[in-house]
Amino acid sequence: MKRTLAIARKEIIAYFTTPIAYVVFAAITVLGSWFFLSLLGQFQRHSFELTRMGRDDMLAHMNLTDQVMVPLVMNLALVLMMSVPFLSMRLLSEEKRQGTMELLLTTPVRPLEIVAGKYIAALAILTTALALTLSYPLLLSAFGSGDQGAVEWPTVLCGYLGLFLLGASAMAVGMFISSLTSSQIVAAFLTLMLLLLTWVVGWKAVDVEGAAREVLLYLSSTQHLISFANGMVELKDVVYYVSYMVLGLFLTHRALEGLRWAA
């Protein structure tokens, strides 16, 4: 455990001494703010129109959670998927390129401790990135108004739980790909492609019917976020993300063990 934490700590120092963490945080904040502002503008226009038309019945259904936060969570998922590859790319490929894998493999550390330490650091960075975007619902609750407060926090936090699980599963996959190559660019590119594939695989579902449709929808990473974003935690969605995570971690561990035999 001590070694796991030492590796996690070293990894976090590396994230912040290289510009990568700052760049990704800045990009997430800029893109996130853009989505937030456009959704907010839409909300504003919509409620203004309804007021002008005197549709108080429909106006009563307008709320910041459903019209701003739920779609924002889905938009943030896209931003997250684009960012994770750049956070996961260096995890193991950097050790290979730098030759420091030789240090890790000749000190009394188990491969499991290496994988766990790296993953903990990656999750810490992911959590920080998500925490930055919590400023949007915080702004809404500070300045907005509604029947039961401006935003329904349980729904919002549930959406963030979904985002965390999505990011964590993507991070595990990215870490595995990073363990396969000593080139960070290759690792980032492959991870991005793979994440995009799991994103768009659901689009094909409109063309097919029956079991095939169910399978395609189940494979799609965003389909599983929809319930979370709307404030529902469903077992099948949790299972989906957790299986990705476990698979990614397991394969990384295997790759590390295998590395010694291939050397």
Partner: peptide
């Protein structure tokens, strides 16, 4: 080792 394995960022 032949090339000391060190972390340049630390």
């Amino acid at each position: 080792p032949e090339h000391p394995p060190l972390y340049p960022d630390l």
